[in-house]
């Protein structure tokens, strides 16, 4: 099966600044791919190249086998796009915007159907220039949904939306995926990605730092646990005792006189038994599981 998106060794330079650095990525048909990274990490540059708004310095991008550079129109015929930094047409209503999207894609139908799906039916006949940021975002999302595209490309789709609106949009994204659409969307908010994406690419300083499934990332992140143990009689000898256990990476007494142990998941019990056995008694235990957030921080810290 042909890939929905194939990005091959793509670099984009602006003078001496490298916005995107040798990125390779393949997105399968039918998956929801989340593109995660800080603002300025190169996500939008990458998406703008996918849409042929800007041209790669080297490398190539294909959408369903169509080269985005030389055959951009066929590539975009199969896409529904929610771009970043768009402006709406003053003087055209929401309904007319969607009608324009339909004309552009050669689709028949009632604009109200998609406006209904994004929940701005009431504002359909108002000048889109007067829409709030969130309403404009919904309207352009509706334009992207026109014609049941095979690939949805959404750049920071939930920006400007309130939490309820963001949730509704995530549900629509999942519905579209159920229908068979491949979804490629970017966000700098981890929860957004975590909630819908099958796979995640982490973009950092123009490079693709990691690509994995959510579970895969969690596994990488979840290899180690931090135990914080309150003991009745904290003593400098305790960390030493614990560090002797196989699987413990480090142990120390923190400022609140608790024992802080970083260890592999499966030795947690051994650590507790060791701490409880001697002159002291374990009073309380809390654990800190590293989150995807930590992993994200881990991946994006190095060259900060």
């Amino acid at each position: 099966m042909v890939l929905a998106i194939r990005i091959s060794d793509v670099t984009k330079r602006y003078g001496s600044f490298t916005a995107v650095d040798r990125v390779d990525l393949a997105v399968e048909q039918g998956e929801v791919f989340g593109f995660l990274g800080h603002n300025g990490a190169g996500k939008s540059t990458m998406i703008n190249m996918l849409l042929d708004f800007i041209r790669p310095t080297s490398g190539s991008i294909e959408v369903f086998g169509a080269d985005c550079r030389t055959d951009g129109v066929s590539a975009r015929e199969r896409m529904g796009v929610l771009p970043e930094g768009y402006g709406v047409y003053a003087g055209l209503t929401g309904r007319q915007h969607v009608q324009f999207a339909m004309d552009s894609k050669g689709v028949e139908g009632d604009p109200l159907d998609v406006l209904d799906r994004v929940g701005i039916t009431d504002a359909a006949d108002r000048d889109a220039d007067g829409y709030s940021k969130g309403m404009a975002q919904r309207m352009v999302f509706a334009m992207a949904l026109v014609g049941e595209p095979e690939l949805l490309v959404l750049d920071e789709p939930t920006s400007g939306l309130d939490p309820a609106g963001a949730k509704a949009m995530r549900e629509t994204i999942l519905e579209e995926n159920e229908r068979g659409a491949t979804v490629f969307f970017s966000s700098h908010i981890l929860e957004q990605i975590e909630a819908v994406a099958d796979r995640v690419g982490i973009m950092h300083h123009g490079q693709l730092a990691a690509v994995d499934t959510i579970d895969g990332l969690r596994e990488k992140a979840g290899g180690e646990t931090k135990l914080i143990v309150s003991v009745s009689d904290p003593d400098e000898s305790l960390p030493e005792t614990v560090e002797g256990i196989d699987g413990v990476e480090s142990a120390r007494i923190n400022d609140e006189q608790q024992v802080e142990v970083t260890c592999a998941k499966h030795v947690k019990m051994d650590v507790l038994l060791a701490l409880n056995g001697q002159n002291s008694e374990v009073l309380d235990v809390t654990t800190e599981e590293p989150s995807l957030e930590d992993l994200f921080v881990e991946y994006t810290r190095g060259s900060e």
Partner: peptide, 17 residues
């Protein structure tokens, strides 16, 4: 003007050359 206001981005996200 379309470019400055971002309308060109919206326009060209559709299959227009």
């Amino acid at each position: 003007a379309e470019r400055a206001a971002g309308r060109l981005v919206l326009l060209l996200s559709f299959p227009h050359s």
